[in-house]
Design a protein around this nucleic acid. Structure first.
Lengths: 130, 130
DNA sequence: ATATTTGCAAATAATTTGCACGTAA
DNA sequence: TTACGTGCAAATTATTTGCAAATAT
């Protein structure tokens, strides 16, 4: 039968540890370069494969940046929330959005649009960069 | 001096006309295929160049779809607004969002985050697809 | 007439994949 | 031991670019 395991390997530890340390969206290439600079021997393919695996598990959230390049960030899956992205340092803060339900209601009434899901991103300056 | 003109050509008319007819995000490849099926002789490069030009003028809005492919749609630039994207047919409806200002205020108070801009997308079913 | 646009084919750039070798269990 | 993971290099895919020929003005 399908045995299905999940080994703990150096590359996976390195990648997870870097993501845990950086609260912002990083591209596969950025992660790869940082790890190599730090002395780790990892291939770019492994970075891609690991990120994809983490995304499938729901541990990281992914988005395309302004240039269309995929970027990834560690993400608590428990609570539905949104991101506030600092234009200065790239730091991402989680923002929960209780006002959403009531907005969904007006969408339904005004546009006849039944909401399944939504995505929001906010761009601006965090406390430190203001 | 730089003369800077703006010719009206067949490819540009075809592309603009297709965009005007389809109120949803289309990829360059989709636009290219449709035009060719319709008997138009256009190159994919021209589609890319034209879309980019329209985006620079502010006539189309662009976004990366779930697979990271760039997609484009005609867009009124006057009013700031958001999109409601139908999961059934892909139809996009414009939604203005007056509640945003007050949300920005709470972001500032609760997170110390100064808002520059934002992007919102809603996924669901339009009237016709419900 | 001539500035601008196009098509084509080649160049880039991001991401994926096949496969022989390495490694965690 | 053996299922799973990795590195490498080659394959794919989206997008951009150089340039000679076509077109709008």
């Amino acid at each position: 039968m399908g045995t299905r395991a999940d080994y703990v390997t150096r590359p996976r530890e390195w990648i997870a540890s870097l993501l845990a340390r950086e609260p912002r969206f990083l591209s596969a290439a950025e992660i790869h370069q940082r790890l190599k600079r730090g002395g780790a021997r990892v291939s770019l393919s492994t970075v891609y494969r690991t990120l994809d695996r983490l995304r499938a598990k729901g541990d990281v959230s992914a988005r395309s940046d302004a240039e269309g390049e995929a970027t990834y960030m560690l993400c608590e899956p428990e609570r539905h929330h949104h991101h506030a992205i600092c234009g200065g340092c790239g730091r991402v803060e989680d923002v929960d959005c209780a006002a959403m339900e009531q907005f969904a209601e007006s969408l339904r009434k005004l546009h006849g649009f039944e909401l399944d899901g939504h995505a929001m991103e906010f761009f601006g300056r965090c406390r430190a960069c203001r």
